[in-house]
Design a protein around this nucleic acid. Sequence first.
DNA 1: TCCAACGTTCGACGTTCGTCAAGGGATTCT
DNA 2: AGAATCCCTTGACGAACGTCGAACGTTGGA
Lengths: 118, 118
Amino acid sequence: MPKALPTVDITDPVCCSPIAAGVMDADDALGIALRLKALGDPVRVQLMSMLLAEPETGVCTCDLAPAVDLSEATVSHHLRQLREAGLVEGTRKGTNVYYRPQPDALEALCRVIDPRCR
Amino acid sequence: MPKALPTVDITDPVCCSPIAAGVMDADDALGIALRLKALGDPVRVQLMSMLLAEPETGVCTCDLAPAVDLSEATVSHHLRQLREAGLVEGTRKGTNVYYRPQPDALEALCRVIDPRCR
DNA sequence: TCCAACGTTCGACGTTCGTCAAGGGATTCT
DNA sequence: AGAATCCCTTGACGAACGTCGAACGTTGGA
């Protein structure tokens, strides 16, 4: 039986020794894996790149949805995954919600899986 | 209906402009997402870190399985995911298969998702 | 006040994933 | 040749995932 993945808060940037610094314990591996999984979908990678192209103003759901050719409900779902992984932040302005990337979180994830870091 | 993810060869290190270099097309996003998904599992992150700790000699399946407390069949499955993503390489020596990490592939993946790169 | 636009949540669906037991192929040793 | 060890593949099962339509909550104007 597949052991159920525990629910963990990963909204803060990842913080543990790099993957190449020695054998990693299960908790740290879980934190890294959950964040990687949040980005492990082609739609979310594309959304992330669109947000990184507008880091200041952000982009709203209604503009993202047609760009990836999916329903707003689906895009909202993907944005939640990214937000729960701390990779994105949404702020409401009028009826719109503008999503902006959180480069620090992405950078931290990078540093942890970089084989050159230890 | 979830559009079926096409089958793509990702055994070579990822090669496309970074995620922060501008809006990314769907094909590049797919290549990145598939590689991230290969690493988006706690067991595989742990396996990767064990292999990175023994980059020269490698580690065989029979030593990895008890270390992550899973059956050899399951570990073999995970190693295949990593191998198909080019993150790992296995070479047979006698009855054993020794797996070694492929830091270049991991480094390339890092570079592509790093928000500082463009 | 009512309406329209935007965004999220919910329920349902088919697919993909992680896991194991069982079985099969290699390789080595006796 | 036979036996033992290692590893992979297959088949099966439940859990998690991606997607949509529909319903719901907010906000800002007529």
